[in-house]
């Protein structure tokens, strides 16, 4: 049995039904959990399995929900996914557990409009300061193909 399989089996024996979906490939494990168990599973991975390194966090807008992925790992990368509601996306912040999560969560706040509960410093990170607060560029509804006529600015 490969390392990935035994790792996944161990997780399944601890969390059972809480792991909704799983997928493995070489040095990659993808898990899906419900938002209630998201913090619990990551806490187990960080505290018990020593996966202190948070590679990054990804947010993707899918058809019915927004998917948040926390990619953890040193040699084997474990990606924990969860789904949040599209209209009022809110999820618990990982900053208490992993201080390094701060910048990744702020990036998602800007670009996808997800709120992180308990974030110590929920300020804007990557968007300009005069950007409208309700526009999130990585949402699929954000239109890039928008014809805008050239403005005449005067001069020669």
């Amino acid at each position: 049995m490969s390392f990935e399989e035994s790792f996944l089996n161990e997780l399944k024996s601890v969390f059972g039904e809480k792991i909704v979906e799983s997928k493995i490939s070489k040095r990659r494990i993808f898990l899906k959990v419900s938002p209630e168990h998201y913090y619990e599973v990551i806490q187990f991975l960080v505290k018990e399995k020593g996966l202190y390194h948070l590679e990054t966090m990804t947010a993707t807008e899918l058809k019915d929900y927004i998917e948040i992925i926390a990619h953890l790992g040193l040699s084997t990368s474990v990606s924990v996914k969860t789904a949040v509601d599209k209209n009022s996306p809110t999820i618990i912040s990982l900053c208490n557990l992993i201080p390094g999560a701060e910048f990744y969560e702020r990036e998602i706040m800007d670009l996808m409009g997800v709120k992180f509960e308990g974030h110590p410093n929920p300020k804007r990170l990557v968007l300009p300061q005069d950007w409208p607060t309700d526009v999130h560029p990585l949402r699929k509804s954000f239109e890039t193909r928008h014809n805008q006529p050239l403005r005449d600015v005067g001069g020669e």
Binding site: V126, P128, V135, Q148
Partner: peptide, 19 residues
């Protein structure tokens, strides 16, 4: 390379990029 998503213009809440 850290901040990768600048848009070409921001004016009075209007945003766009050129395709």
């Amino acid at each position: 390379c850290t901040a990768r998503v600048q848009f070409i213009d921001v004016k009075k809440g209007k945003t766009w990029t050129w395709t």
